[in-house]
Every structure is written in C-alpha cells, then in structure tokens.
C-alpha cells in the first residue's frame, strides 16, 4: 500500500510540473496554432489535478467546457483569421525582460508567503456528488445562479449584436 501512496504523490507532482511546462510553452511558442494546442494540454492537466483531489464532477466539467468547447472555439477562431496563424507575428515586445524580472521578484515574494502560511487543511476529504451540487445550486446558491443566467442571456444578445453584419 505504501508504494501506491508514494507513487500517487510522485505522479501528482509530475502532473504539476507537466502543467507548468506546457503553460510556459503556450506563451513562448511563436506559432499561435501550436500555442492553442499547448493551452488545451494545460487545461487538461488542470482537470487531472481535479481528479487527484477527488473533485470528479469539476474535472468532468473542466474537460467538457474548456477542452471540449472553448478550445474548439479558439482553434476555429485561429483558423478563420487570416494573418493570425502566421508564425512571423511577434509574440512579445521590448518590455519582456523588465516584466520578467518584476514577475520573478513577485513570485519569490508570493512563494515565500505561501510557505510561511499554515494552511487550514483537513484530513477527511469532502465528497460532493452531482445530486448535492444540484440541490445547492437551487437552494443556497439560487441567487448567484439566477444572476448568472441573466448574464448569459445578455452575453447572447450582445454576441448577436456584435456579429450581425447589417447596418
């Protein structure tokens, strides 16, 4: 049993490192189409993290929405826009090095704070199934739920207004 546990820990960290690697590739690769593919892998990796933390529902939703729907949309957008897929379009500007230094300094600061904090962790995992999730959405969370539905409607109307070609 011991060996399974340590195997799980190792593979968990492996996934995290993998996510970081493809995320960096996403922002550094020159070809936008490749960047989109790497982004899909990043999002898939996040779904795997959710599986590890036993949030299966969230993991399923992550794959369905991000990897399935949104990435398809992104790739379509890239393929339909004429010049954007050109690898010669620069991916960065002159401010990259100052920005990098600032971000690194900030990362050091943030990581040291995270390590210093004693996080409020529990040993027993809270399991959430779809039924309880649904009940909570219609019970305690009904107000945010309804607000979101209103926003979705508005986004739909807005998208039609923006996309319609007539004057």
């Amino acid at each position: 049993m011991e060996i399974f546990n340590s195997l799980a820990t190792v593979s968990f960290y492996g996934v995290l490192v993998g996510i970081l690697a493809v995320a960096i590739l996403t922002v550094t690769t020159r070809n936008l189409f490749h960047a989109a593919i790497f982004l899909a892998f990043t999002l898939l990796g996040v779904a795997v993290v959710y599986f590890f933390l036993q949030a299966e529902f969230l993991a399923g939703v992550q794959i369905l929405i991000y990897v399935g729907a949104i990435m398809t949309l992104v790739i379509f957008a890239i393929m339909l826009t004429s010049k954007i897929g050109d690898p010669n379009v620069p991916q960065s500007n002159r401010q990259r090095y100052p920005a990098l230094i600032l971000i690194l300094a900030f990362a050091v600061f943030l990581i040291s704070t995270i390590l210093k904090t004693s996080w409020n962790t529990t040993e027993t995992l809270q399991t959430t199934d779809a039924i309880r999730l649904g009940k909570a959405l219609m019970g305690e969370f009904v107000f945010p739920f309804e607000v979101v539905s209103l926003v979705l409607l508005i986004a739909l109307i807005g998208a039609i207004v923006v996309a319609r070609s007539d004057q």
């Binding site: 995270i114 210093k116 904090t117 004693s118 996080w119 962790t121």
Partner: peptide
C-alpha cells in the same frame, strides 16, 4: 487549530 500565520497571506 490551524489558521496561524495567515496574516501575510
């Protein structure tokens, strides 16, 4: 009980 050193965070 946990929750210490959360000030910085």
């Amino acid at each position: 009980t946990g929750g210490a050193n959360t000030h910085g965070m």
